[in-house]
Design a binder for these strands. Sequence first.
DNA 1: CCTGCTGCCCGTACTTAGTACGAGAGGTTA
DNA 2: TAACCTCTCGTACTAAGTACGGGCAGCAGG
Lengths: 214, 214
Amino acid sequence: MAKVGTLSRERVLGGAVAVADAGGLASLTIRSLAQELGVKPMSVYHHVANKEEILDGIVDLVFAEMDLPRTDGDWRTEMHRRATSARRVLRRHPWAITLLHSRTSPGPATLRHHDAVIGTLRAGGFSVQLTAHAFALIDSYVYGFALTESTLPIDDPDKIAELAESMMPAEAAAVYPHLVAFTAEHVMRPGYDFGDEFEYGLDLILDGLARSAG
Amino acid sequence: MAKVGTLSRERVLGGAVAVADAGGLASLTIRSLAQELGVKPMSVYHHVANKEEILDGIVDLVFAEMDLPRTDGDWRTEMHRRATSARRVLRRHPWAITLLHSRTSPGPATLRHHDAVIGTLRAGGFSVQLTAHAFALIDSYVYGFALTESTLPIDDPDKIAELAESMMPAEAAAVYPHLVAFTAEHVMRPGYDFGDEFEYGLDLILDGLARSAG
DNA sequence: CCTGCTGCCCGTACTTAGTACGAGAGGTTA
DNA sequence: TAACCTCTCGTACTAAGTACGGGCAGCAGG
């Protein structure tokens, strides 16, 4: 698509994010990436060793987009802000959610992010033990929520009712009575938005942690 | 590997789970699956339409392994049991976690599972609204935790310290002070096991829900 | 007992993807 | 000007999904 100046590692990774955003992780191939960058496939390999390195690189780019909590701020405010930001970023790059966790070589932005989270909790008076609890709990929730959310046809609540209906033929009511009733009474109501659940869970978790932190 | 009798959809899906368990999702190819089943690649296609259908199928097999909550039991006990079971199953089949959420056509075991969860919450006195909250919260936590856990070199806590050390060169202490300190004070302690965090978070969440349920 | 149908298995081959190898173009330095 | 980099790309090999059609085995009806 856009071809400006020379290739570089930054342009390669930026292009990779653009391709993944546009067509999902599966559409990110060396060839599609090269086309996006206006070069031939093998040119890419002068800036990254292999595709793995591209994946590691875009994961770090995604982490870089998330707000860092401030160590000197109120822990609860900061945790809430960073969780909300993380979720927003993962909504923008749904492909990143599974990728984040399949990579084992974290980049600098990733490490900086975790450092800030731990630092904020410790500064907020959390013991090492409680920091570990909070870290695991909040992260699991945020990623898990994003993961669940990513499978829904986002940005179009109307589609959800449609989808739900197609998944639930009439016979289903006999076999899955609770699921069908729940869908009818809640999911298919106008104004339903799964994303609204995020705040509830996050607040419940932060309340629980606040109680433990004393 | 094992060749007994004729091929069938069941044997195909069972073989696919075995291959994925042994070598990860990436190792599951039509060719590797055929070899596991003792047949040639194209034979598989007489029992499933394509690879997508295999993926949908093994997701449903995984759901089938999880304990169902009992509608007539105490909601808290049942939710705890099913969350623990789900986590255990996902530990056994780590490849399933991301797969669960990339599939959009749920099978019967999947639907039955969700039906039982919703039914148990409603029977436990949860309003429709609160059921939605609880469902999203618990599931997000369980899947998110499993996702995080799946990236660790499981079943070998000693390896974790080693890994942590390799990820943290000496210079890192200056750039990521909190992360390095936390790792030294907590992660690298003998007896550390990330999996232990699961109970803490689950109890905190169930406590919070119990408070809301009144 | 033969004929033909049907279900299952497989041989062949096409397509897409990652990427090794090495050539060549252009600029830089000695 | 010659040796050297740096970057790009042409060619081609390998692995994977799977379309297409052939062949075989077992069963049904004549």
